[in-house]
Design a protein around this nucleic acid. Sequence first.
DNA 1: TAGAAGGGAA
DNA 2: CGGACTCCCTTCTA
Length: 855
Amino acid sequence: MPPKRKASDIGSARASKISTPNPATPVSLRSEDNDEYLSGSNNQSDQDYVSGSEQEHINRFKKKTAFSSYSSKAKTNRARPSIFGSKDFSYLSLKPDHDNRPLWIDPSVSAGSKKGPKITLESFSPLAAQAEDFLITVAEPQSRPIYLHEYRLTEHSLYAALSVGLSGQDIIRTLEKLSKTPLPTTVSDFINRHTKSYGKVRLVLRDNRFFVESEEPTIIQMLLKDPVIESCRKEGAEVVQGTLANKAVVISGTSDARGARQTADQPGQNTEAPKEGRETKEDEIMKALRDEDDEEDPSKQTHSFEIGPNTREKVAERCLDIGYPALSEYDYQNDRVNPDLKIDLKPHTQIRSYQEKALSKMFGNGRAKSGIIVLPCGAGKTLVGITAGCTIRKGIIVLCTSAMSVFQWSNEFKKWSDVNSGDVAVFTSGEKEKFRGQTGVIVSTYSMISQTRQRAHDSEEMMKWITSREWGLMILDEVHVVPAAIFRKVAENVRAHCKLGLTATLLREDDKITDLNYIIGPKLYEANWMELADQGHIAKVQCAEVWCPMTIEFYQEYQSLSSRKQALLYIMNPTKFQVCQFLIDYHERRGDKIIVFSDNVFALKQYAEKLKKAYIFGGTGQQERIRILENFQHNDAVNTIFLSKIGDTSLDLPEATCLIQISSHYGSRRQEAQRLGRILRAKRRNDEGFNAFFYSLVSKDTSEMGYSAKRQAFLVDQGYAFKVITQLSGMESLPGLAFKTLEERLELLNHVLLQQETNADIANIEQIDEDLFSGRSGALNSHGKKKALVRRQAGSLADLAGGGQMAYKEQNVSRNKQLKKDRGPQSEYFKKEARARERRRKARQKEQADAAGVD
DNA sequence: TAGAAGGGAA
DNA sequence: CGGACTCCCTTCTA
């Protein structure tokens, strides 16, 4: 255990070392020679600075240095005021007992922004656990390494906090209590601004129709004046008045009564042993803070208007935009319209503490809220979904990304709950079942539901059946895919009272992830991976990045190539291959099961064939896949498999304990996290001192390094430390090490370049034909850029690699055309590409024709 | 069972 | 900011 450093220690240590320039007169002190700040004492500025009491002096130091650990820029000892820039908060005074308070709160909030203040938690503080429970309720975790956790208050995180029953005042009060400085007014303003209009508008589903509802007629009027919302109002629909239905039943209970009711609904939770700290500190905070004044008058009038079909999402988005988030909470206990489903957790089913915590966010006030729960892979997302279903006990629809997970879900339902197997139906292209009873569980895929093209007859029937009913709960597995244009239609097509999104990695490389806030709902819970690992729910992982130097011949070629062609070179770097071979050998001898990932199929095959291991990629047949996976799982002789991107999502991988990544898709953080997730569920995690291993092989001094850093960002935020390995001892002496001689390496280089050339060559031919056909000379594309025509570097190749053995000879264009005609069986890929190109060309022509027609 | 078609990720 | 790139998925049809 490393020593726990307190901010105060840091502060005083630095105070004795560095000089203290006066922040008020930084210009005069900013000499060209920075050393002035580091060595010797600058008495003059010291004098200026110590204007108040000695205590104040120290306080300022503490504050300044602690805030400097805030910003990653300030890692050096060069603690100059200028480096704080706008982040110089020395004007805030510290509370006398600030050592005992765990939070630093950044007061800078830009007006009107939805992003609120940043909060930094000292995780070594005695109050950290309590503060963390509070923070995951009200803020979004940004980064959680070992000592300092960063959170951020956002509009959405505040909404989520309010929906579990906190009020704006509660949040302000608790922050004030935990903060080292008095709570800046900018922060309390931000909280007030975003909490005052919360809960005024509801979006309710009644009789399979959507209504916007509020208790205040003025708000309804205000919404109707908004052009966007007005346009979504169903034609001719008037504002109708009603009374809140039976709210008294729900609200009457105190939080204790509610707890009792909930556990009565979920016997599984009841049997959960208290050893994992059921009564969390968070609960205590919640109890202490919960406003008891949310008792609603059951006779309250409501005003509502109906909105047109398929406008729900638009209305929700607009309401959020104008600061009146439309809640859609489902009062499932008082739903007398939809038939109940007989489903309960089996008695032996145990819910883990964090799963329960997640669910308590969802059912916080006795109603079911829509939202997203983020749990790492292998932490039992399915069980969370099933438990939610067992609580609501109405019709359940589950959507997943692939047909395979459809069957997994349906099996999990039968495994963990006592639902009649006749009540669980699956809907995929292969099987179309309906449940026999009035209601039940249906499991399907996103693409089945969002299919726009013509459907087979029975599929059509099935869709009608699904869309014509109201669902109590819609579970969206792998919810991060939903923002894609096609999948988000699902939320419209299927009408559900409550939507629960589940994912391990709530991030995308595009900016659509925030759309989930109105498509589904806010993030309700996000687990701390490190904490789960410490508790033994998921495996502990040692992450390492291995830097493999490029061999000279490869690096020379690398530098001479265009960036696109460089990729294959750094993937096929012989040193990388040797490292891979060494690691496989090492871990196989330890008895690990190893998965090697490569995004590049060519490299995948080369590596696997050279090392004589099995590999699976998109083109591998179904039978073959199953055979390989089964061998990997049960046959002790098969300990290593190579997988392409196919392993990221669509394979049900057996457990592995070691993972090696030799090439990856640019900077995808999601992919990195997902791959790591493949080893998190390793069973041996309960052994003393057991670790799983995650290696990322990177070619040194290539663009791969940059991608690698970006990919790791998410995992680093989760608290994983990446070790950098530059030297593997004993690698050189490994028997049978590949590519030891220059000849071998040159041969490999040759092979790689040849592969590239063939690839590029065919593409170029296609390009020429296309240009000929479209009557253009190929000189310019629509952007006015020069299009790449046939360009080759035959000279450099021959020089480098002893071109005598080369199978490739340069051909002129007409010869290429001839070749194209004579070309034997094309690879599947090129056929597909040709089709895609053809499609694109047609689309372009059509566009041009259309444009001409308009003119 | 393969292939055609549409689509996603980044 | 939109397209090129490359791999992958799913559905339906022949």
